[in-house]
Design a protein around this nucleic acid. Structure first.
Lengths: 372, 372
DNA sequence: TGGGATTTGTTTATTGGTTGAATTATTTGG
DNA sequence: CCAAATAATTCAACCAATAAACAAATCCCA
């Protein structure tokens, strides 16, 4: 039970790592609580002692990650508990998005509340990548000032892009933007991570409806992308290029695709195809998603992006194919549902990725905050 | 760098967990070394101090997991190092397999050497599940006696089955055995885990060629299964039913499959189909594997089971489809290779799964060994 | 042949972090 | 107003890793 291995990582563990882990454990316990838990409640649910939890909470409060509140509930005898909650004045995340016809930025605080939101409409394909990024920098700087006016410190930024992203913020290809091998620089003077829009939207969905640890999020825009979340962790693939469901073959000898192959899902369930023939799109989606479920045994499929508003027209056709083609459909249910987040999903997921990093490694944040 | 989070697990961490982790770290470092590393070399490659490594190694030697050897190499000045190696007299794993026309058992020691091997040929479909398991128990007891005669202690057993396995050793369906909802009991008095044959074969492959952390192992027997290994960890799926590549749709309106759908891979690349038309099989495999790579971004595909001997006839056709249908084929290579292990892969993988458990949690083994 | 250089492995005091028990704090209920 | 109950803190003990000094065993060179 105890004394189990921590993980398979090839790193030595010392006492400071213990504290780092337990700090994250406490912080995440608070983050995942519906109400405001007391130190004693945290001790109970984590298995740590009250003494340890007290010490950890002190650090988290001092570092501006938690705040102490009045003992809202009033039950039975005993000293009333002090409720703990994520601080809404601690670090915040800057979420950015570039898409075909708009740019957007948002500031999300540690509690998940969207504090600011900026959108600039305009066809990005008319701009060079450098010009587009310069414009995005203006938006980012504006968001940063707004955050600082609220007393928030931005912990970092994440940018959602409709394309293939290599490590280090290098956009290899973003066909619908016309980008190729574009390196994204610092924006608003913040360290930035760049990721595929479907991946980040999946992370946003994970936060919005945290009950399901494993699911696939399918985003239907001009292209089709998927974010795969396994056990609460976004799966990025060996080289960061997972989730290219748009180019899964549906009809081997079917319509030619711009990628050079024939019968890619994108040709049957892209934006135009959905508008032209929703039934065909649903069948094609159902075939491709059956492959996903047969391979990965995921119980939940989330339809996002352009699919969300079309959900009513698509779900029946998709589910019919799943019933027919998923081997274990009779043994375990597969549910299809629309995304909880709307068009902002990728940007919100980006901001969320930043604060997720802080929540997963509060010790790192405290050390950085200390250093400044 | 240091002070990073250990993992996302929701468990408290105490000093004993630190020791458990570092014990595993040292043991795995020895396991993954080509030569026999010294304590100082382990300290160097893990980042632990020599003092700590010494203490950990003492525990591992006392527990029969490591042995100390003479300073084989002779290089330069300084006190000669004592070489450390996995003990070949410590815990061992019992690997079991039931397939259509045979049963098999093997004993593999901690170093990975196959110490004993037993096979009983015979059509399992003529036996009831209970009778087949009783026969397997005979084999298991024989293997256990042989192991004990060598001074080996079996740490556990794992059984490979061609079918869908639910947690708790419940075989939900094994179509080619004619099994349905069969619960596997203790065999030879050992705790047993039951798993799909492709999953275990993939684990065996991971051990046999440990250089690639992420790959898919495809096993072509009567049915077709896949074991998916992501970052060195077997991915089992939300409910344990991942890797059903045999029922990925290749031709949506194609041949009817026994599962009720049409155009499943199994109908085009099962044993009979490969014999009848290798080119068709290769094309179908290529289409299905393209979906796997598009979704998961895996760089290596291992062809095992019945595909391994047919590799020369299949690889060209598979690679052609991959080149055509994998979106990122131009950016990152996908290699296809035959399995390193032969027909025994699943059974060896099963035995390996047992000793893998010991290697990943030596502290647990030491505690159990202590208790006896 | 002998002494310094070099590397391995052990010993010892120190440090950091959790635990468990005792203590303090604050409320409810009789 | 006191006892029971619950929350939170304090403090000594313990465990595991670290750093630095030390012991052991070899090589190399004069």
């Amino acid at each position: 039970m105890n004394g189990r291995i921590l993980n398979a990582s090839r790193a030595p563990v010392r006492q400071s790592s213990v504290r780092a882990h337990n700090l994250a454990l406490v912080l995440q316990t608070v983050a995942n609580s519906a109400n405001r838990p007391s130190r004693a409640a945290i001790a109970g649910s984590t298995g740590l002692t009250r003494a340890t939890v007290s010490a950890l909470v002190d650090d988290l409060i001092a570092g501006g990650l938690l705040t102490e509140h009045d003992p809202a509930p009033r039950t039975g005898a005993g000293r009333p508990a002090a409720g703990l909650a994520l601080s809404s004045e601690g670090p915040a995340g800057l979420g950015l998005e570039i898409n075909v016809d708009y740019q957007a930025a948002c500031v999300v605080d540690l509690t998940g509340v969207v504090r600011h939101r900026f959108v600039a409409r305009g066809d990005q394909r008319l701009l060079s990548p450098a010009a587009a990024l310069a414009e995005l920098d203006v938006l980012a700087v504006r968001a940063r000032s707004a955050a600082e006016a609220d007393g928030l410190t931005l912990a970092g930024a994440a940018l959602a892009v409709p394309g293939l992203v290599a490590p280090g913020g290098l956009v290899r290809v973003a066909p619908n933007l016309g980008w190729q091998d574009v390196r994204v620089p610092e924006l608003a003077g913040l360290p930035i991570t760049v990721d595929n829009e479907a991946n980040l939207a999946a992370l946003g969905e994970l936060r919005a409806d945290g009950t399901e640890p494993s699911f696939v999020y399918v985003s239907g825009e001009i292209g089709i992308g998927a974010g795969i979340v396994l056990d609460g962790v976004l799966y990025r693939g060996g080289r960061g290029w997972s989730g290219e469901i748009g180019h899964v073959t549906v009809y081997p000898d079917g319509r030619p695709c711009r990628c050079g192959a024939n019968g890619c899902l994108e040709q049957y369930a892209g934006q135009e195809a959905v508008a032209a023939d929703p039934d065909l799109a649903a069948a094609a989606l159902g075939i491709a998603l059956s492959a996903v479920v047969n391979l990965l045994d995921l119980g939940v499929i989330v339809l996002g992006g352009g699919y969300a508003p079309e959900f009513a027209r698509l779900s029946e056709g998709i589910e019919a194919e799943l019933r027919r083609r998923v081997l274990t459909a009779g043994l375990a249910p597969v549910t299809v549902r629309p995304a909880a987040l709307g068009a902002d999903a990728a940007m919100l997921g980006a901001a969320d990725a930043v604060i997720r990093d802080v929540q997963e490694d509060p010790a790192g944040w405290l050390a950085r905050a200390q250093a400044v």
